[in-house]
């Protein structure tokens, strides 16, 4: 895979509707993730099953959540995507009942692509900003 192909895969992964990805996985058609997937998050490292459970929880809480890629750079087998993430709080999230509030935050992800599949993923989103916008913690 060329760097340009990897960039295209990363851009597509972060543009597709999260609900669609979930449906594809449930029907056994996972287009994006490698089985040996490792995701590094502020809540700890997650394997394939752990990450799918996490995505399910996020999509249940924010059914319209969506990444919007803003900038993409790449080197070797890694692609960096700077994104905005938006969503509306419609279900329980980490013990916080639905508020109906929307959030818009920024973040950066690093995706390692192996043979056209996402094999490793680091991401840092502005969780503090999100919790403040949902009113779960006071704004500074």
């Amino acid at each position: 895979m060329s760097i340009e192909e990897n960039k295209e895969i990363a851009r597509r992964y972060l543009s597709v509707d999260a609900n669609q990805i979930r449906k594809d996985i449930e029907s056994g058609q996972d287009e994006f993730h490698a089985p040996e997937l490792m995701v590094h998050t502020p809540m700890g490292d997650m394997n394939y099953e752990g990450y799918m459970a996490f995505m399910n929880a996020v999509v249940s809480a924010f059914p319209d959540c969506k990444y919007n890629p803003e900038d993409v750079i790449a080197e070797g087998d890694k692609v960096v995507v700077r994104y905005t993430l938006t969503g509306t709080h419609r279900g329980d999230f980490q013990g916080i009942p639905a508020t109906g509030k929307s959030f818009k935050i920024e973040g950066i992800g690093i995706l390692r692509i192996d043979n056209g599949k996402l094999a490793e993923f680091w991401f840092a989103s502005d969780m503090l900003g999100m919790m403040q916008q949902l009113g779960a913690i006071p704004a500074q």
């Binding site: 502020p42 700077r82 920024e106 973040g107 950066i108 840092a124 502005d126 969780m127 919790m131």
Partner: peptide
């Protein structure tokens, strides 16, 4: 610069959240 420091974890580790 576009920075994404994990301030949420930082405030949790300090016990502020």
């Amino acid at each position: 610069e576009w920075g994404s420091p994990d301030l949420f974890s930082l405030m949790q580790q300090l016990g502020a959240i």
